[in-house]
Design a binder for these strands. Structure first.
Lengths: 348, 348
DNA sequence: CTGAAAGCGCTTACAG
DNA sequence: CTGAAAGCGCTTACAG
């Protein structure tokens, strides 16, 4: 055996072996061709059950790990799924991502997480950069994007699932709920509690915040109580501090307001803390409602009434849907409405 | 031109072109060989400035995007950096990640984000799976990992930067601060305020929480005030609700406690809310301190005294350090201490 | 149901 | 400073 060494150098020098256990090694060990080994491992078409077992055993024994790069190059499809969310600082999207990962990872897919900061230009750059990695699929938040971003997605022909919103469009896959209906439901709840001067406070002003506003408007108009001066829209990033600031400013300007519907729980928590600071009674003087049921909302004084949004369910369902699309399944439902839940606590 | 079609099919049928603009196209357009084009684009070794410009122009003109899979396969090094954090539900790590991404993305690297849930077995699985992608580098949180996780990292020979903690070990790269010293500083602050019965409340009990505990112990022992029954350690996940629960339980058991040092701000916020609910005066009856300066801490009643941890700086610095290591730079500083800041507010 | 050949798009290792 | 050849580790497209 040691006799080989002196003769081989020239050949050896040419090689660039990475020391990796390769599919060829597995095939040799199993006594089949590399193609068969490849097919057996991927459970592709018919390969005799006996062979599949033999190949799997060989792979196991050698500690074979398929090379994603080689696979991607040969098949022009990687094991990556690009997942784009607006923010990681909103717990909502973290919960969504965790659920997505919990479905995708066991299925052999890696998530490439992109944070768009609610900026369509940033999203487009991310899309462009991630597309170069030939992802196997896409998960995108909502439907708001730039023209060319849209084209990138459409032109790629890649399976794509949109999350958080729903859409009747048949050419689009989505998992979410009607933000507008949820906004309507919360406003109705406040009206049913006897509130008349109900304000809506929105920040960030992304599409979903505006859809909730639509629901609020509809409920207020139906009740004949709509007053445009009670719509407070601030483009700044949603936060506890901003909620406190807007709560104080709104009540200074409109002392007769008897309920505030904040578009997100962090704002509402800030509002509740401001009320404590200012000695304003909640809900006696003013009722406070939020959206999303974020951490801490149930601990506030008083506990915050809000809309619980099933983001974990959305993430898991979207990932499963994407898996089905990537498998090439036909008649996958396009539009999945997972609903929402009104959670009434002490603040209203 | 249309005359070609009838003759070519057999050859065409063999091809599997993806329609992508390839390096060969760029090389042809620039009138150089693919190798030269490759080197020019990567700014590898000497390629005439004139040629570099010509190649770049050609690439630009054709809209060339390098194929990461092909690059990874040929060089056995991808453009991925694996970044492992314990949790995304702690804002701390989100801030860290954002900073890492903001440095890595412009440099052409993608982050593969892995969430370990403070579980060394989960971390090991992630490591194993990410290693298959031949990442160009690693960013890991802390030093606590399984034997085989350790071996995976060490054996790979990959550049690796550890974040959040520091270590004098010369073979290890890290960016962080001394958690123990920070814990010591906060405890001293409470003692200087005249507090004598200072409790430490920790949850999760990961390495850093225990290091802060060490600092607390040291300060208490030096002051001759250490009392082991005032160390409250709960393995459950840190949260606002848990902080409220532990605050109430601790004061019920030890009514003489005059200060509580929570290992994280979410716990402390919960403690503050519980105090409000129970009518316990903060800081008069009991002072409350937290750690990390998370969102909302400055909005609490009273505002929370805490330790501001420069996680954005840590993330950015770690990413730059990794970039230097991946470039093969020598004498990169091993151990970067970015410090921390005691933020004294109304709660102490 | 299985396999020999070619190719995916790059870079490494040698030469010149 | 530039290039022709080979190879990275897989899978696709054809055959049988």
């Amino acid at each position: 055996m040691s006799a080989d060494s002196p003769v081989e150098p020239p050949a050896e020098r040419r090689r660039r072996s990475t020391g990796r256990v390769t599919l060829a090694d597995v095939a040799k060990a199993a006594g089949v061709s590399p193609i068969t080994a490849s097919r057996a491992l991927r459970r592709d078409r018919g390969v005799g059950e006996a062979l599949v077992e033999k190949v799997k055993a060989a792979a196991e024994g050698l500690g074979y790990v398929p090379d994603p790069a080689a696979r991607a190059l040969a098949s022009s499809r990687s094991s990556h799924v690009a997942v784009l969310v607006p923010l990681l600082t909103n717990r909502l999207f973290v919960d969504l991502l965790e659920a997505v990962q919990s479905v995708l990872l066991p299925a052999g897919y890696q998530s490439l997480i992109g944070v768009t900061h609610y900026d369509v230009r940033e999203e487009e750059l991310l899309l462009r950069s991630y597309m170069a990695h030939r992802p196997a699929g896409l998960i995108l938040t909502g439907f708001e994007r730039s023209e060319s971003g849209q084209r990138l997605v459409g032109g790629s022909g890649l399976p794509c699932v949109h999350v958080m919103e729903i859409s009747p469009a048949p050419e689009v896959y989505c998992v979410g709920f009607s933000q507008q209906t949820a906004g309507l439901a919360m406003t109705r709840h406040l009206l049913e509690r006897g509130r008349r001067r109900v304000a809506y406070v929105g920040a960030q002003l992304d599409a979903r915040v505006m859809q909730r506003l639509e629901g609020y408007r509809e409920a207020m108009q139906v009740a004949g109580l709509h007053d445009a001066s009670l719509e407070w829209l601030d483009p700044r990033r949603s936060s506890i501090a901003l909620g406190a600031e807007l709560f104080e400013a709104l009540l200074a300007r409109h002392p007769d307001v008897d309920a505030i519907f904040f578009c997100n729980d962090d704002l509402a928590q800030g509002g509740l803390l401001a009320a404590l600071r200012l000695g304003i009674q909640v809900p006696e003087q003013v009722a406070v409602a939020g959206f999303n049921d974020l951490e801490g909302s149930d601990q506030m004084l008083p506990p915050l009434t809000t809309v619980r949004t099933p983001r974990a369910q959305i993430g898991a369902h979207a990932a499963s849907m994407l898996l089905a699309l990537m498998r090439g399944e036909r008649d996958v439902p396009h539009n999945v409405d997972v609903g929402y839940e009104l959670v009434v606590r002490g603040s209203t």
